[in-house]
Design a protein around this nucleic acid. Structure first.
Length: 265
DNA sequence: AAACTGTTTCCTGCTT
DNA sequence: TAAGCAGGAAACAGTT
């Protein structure tokens, strides 16, 4: 690793765990944060800056230096748990003025769904100034609202979503999301689940043992059974993720489940 | 370190 | 009789 300041090391550690790669002279569209920061040829000025002489949050975006842009990007990745592997960092090797002139489409091209987030955040900073960040809870709520309205995951954007713009990554950690994604993913479903009423979110478990087995594989638990899985599903009635349907093996998404509606995909 | 969340496991009783 | 449902209770693992 080339000699980095403490600040730089903190930034690198917090953003990515990518393996350090030697310098490259071209701009790889999927070049990682680490790759770029470790490349002096690509980012020559960085070595001479100290830890505290550059705070993006104290300058208006249009006056950001490249360094400020990187700090902002790092902040967003950390704060909103964006998947750095889906961000083409070389697209963000620009000044604040250039960043502000980028269209939403250009953000999406540079970072998929993460780009939509980044664009949203930047526009808020530009319009609200730093009051957007003055209250962490308010900011998180604003981001959540945006995520909900654009049908994105609030728990962090996964790389599959960024690259394919798909909601059916099957990487969800929650049982109900796993079930939802299985319903939305015919190639993975194999007839295990099927819609009874697509509009109302009513679905049926066709192969209960297979569903339990698949969930068990996901959780690395070979003792999973449908009986235990269904107990977990029944807990969702309390939270409005699922609603009762008085038929065997039939469930319905509740008002607090999102991402299953056809017209919002 | 403790509190919290989302299960997992086990259970009894009931229904289909 | 088997399979599934309802929901209490406690344990557990990961996160905050």
């Amino acid at each position: 690793m080339p000699s980095l300041s403490r600040c730089e090391r903190v930034m690198l550690d917090s953003v990515t765990h990518s393996t350090f790669l030697p310098n490259t002279s071209f701009c790889d569209p999927l070049m990682s944060w680490t790759d770029l920061f470790s490349n002096e040829e690509y980012y020559p000025a960085f070595e001479h800056q100290t830890a505290c002489d550059s705070y993006w949050s104290s300058v208006h975006p249009e006056y950001w230096t490249k360094r400020h842009v990187w700090e902002w990007l790092q902040f967003c990745c950390d704060q909103y748990k964006l998947d750095t592997s889906c961000i083409s960092f070389c697209h963000f090797n620009v000044s604040g003025l250039q960043l502000c002139s980028m269209t939403q489409e250009e953000f999406v091209e540079a970072a998929g769904l993460c780009g939509e987030y980044l664009y949203f955040i930047l526009q808020n900073i530009r319009s609200q100034g730093y009051s957007f960040f003055s209250d962490a809870e308010e900011t998180k709520a604003a981001i959540k609202d945006y995520a909900d309205s654009s049908c994105l995951k609030t728990s962090g954007i996964k790389s599959q979503d960024c690259h394919s713009h798909s909601r059916t990554s099957l990487q969800s950690s929650h049982l109900w999301e796993f079930v939802r994604d299985l319903l939305l993913s015919p190639e993975e479903n194999c007839g295990i689940l099927e819609w009874e009423d697509r509009e109302q979110g009513i679905f049926r478990v066709v192969k209960s043992e297979a569903l339990a087995k698949m969930w068990g594989q996901r959780k690395k638990n070979d003792r999973m059974t449908y009986e235990k899985l269904s107990r977990a599903l029944r807990y969702y009635y309390k939270t409005g993720i699922l609603e009762r349907v008085d038929r065997r093996l039939v469930y319905k998404f509740g008002k607090n489940a999102h991402g299953w509606q056809e017209d919002k995909l």
